[in-house]
Amino acid sequence: MARQRAQCPEDLNRLVLERLNAGDVDGLVELYEPDAVLATPAGPVVGHVAIRAAYEQIVAGSPQFAPGAAQPPVRNGDLALTSVLLAGGGATVEVARRQPDGSWRWIIDQPNLGA
């Protein structure tokens, strides 16, 4: 299945929300570089295999996630800091990198800093 790639850092937060709500674990993993780090309540996980396992648990009960207020990314060359203010309080913070094909993927993801 061909999935939309993030053509700019702003696309990443929209795509993760769409894929979370669709239960699309493979699509979620595609948003990360192969050796990316994802913070989880149990501690950070590294790489596609561990990120896949984390998302399998997250979407197992088919929860629905509400959109937050995406903040403008802060860019420095091929890196971007993305963030979202969550509807229930707290925020997400991520670091994305431009890929050789021009798309963007996360390399570090902290999905919930708490309120």
Rank of each mutant, 00 (worst) to 15 (best):
R52F: 02
S83M: 11
V95S: 06
A54T: 05
P111C: 11
G77W: 10
A115G: 15
A54S: 05
R105Q: 15
A22F: 08
P111S: 11
G23N: 03
L38T: 01
V29L: 10
W104H: 00
L38I: 04
E94L: 07
A2E: 14
P9D: 02
G68A: 09
W106V: 02
L38F: 07
H48Q: 06
A6C: 09
D109R: 05
E56P: 03
G27C: 02
S83C: 08
R98S: 04
V74M: 15
D78E: 07
A115R: 14
I58A: 04
D11R: 05
G88M: 11
R75H: 07
A60P: 03
G114L: 01
V49I: 13
P72E: 07
I108Y: 14
V46G: 09
R14M: 09
A87K: 08
V25M: 03
P41Y: 04
G102W: 08
Q57I: 05
T82S: 08
G89K: 10
V29A: 06
V84K: 04
G43M: 08
A50V: 09
A87E: 08
G43Y: 13
A50W: 13
S62H: 14
G61R: 10
P34K: 09
A22D: 14
C8G: 12
T92I: 03
R52P: 00
A54H: 05
A54L: 03
N112K: 08
P100N: 12
V37W: 04
G77S: 11
D101Q: 02
Q64S: 01
V37L: 02
P111Y: 12
E33K: 06
V59Y: 07
T92W: 06
A66M: 14
G90Q: 00
S103R: 10
P44I: 13
E33F: 08
G77Y: 09
A91W: 15
N112A: 13
D26Q: 12
G61M: 09
A6T: 11
L20Q: 05
D35P: 07
A87D: 08
C8I: 10
Y32M: 12
A42V: 10
V37G: 02
L86G: 04
L15G: 01
I107S: 11
V74I: 15
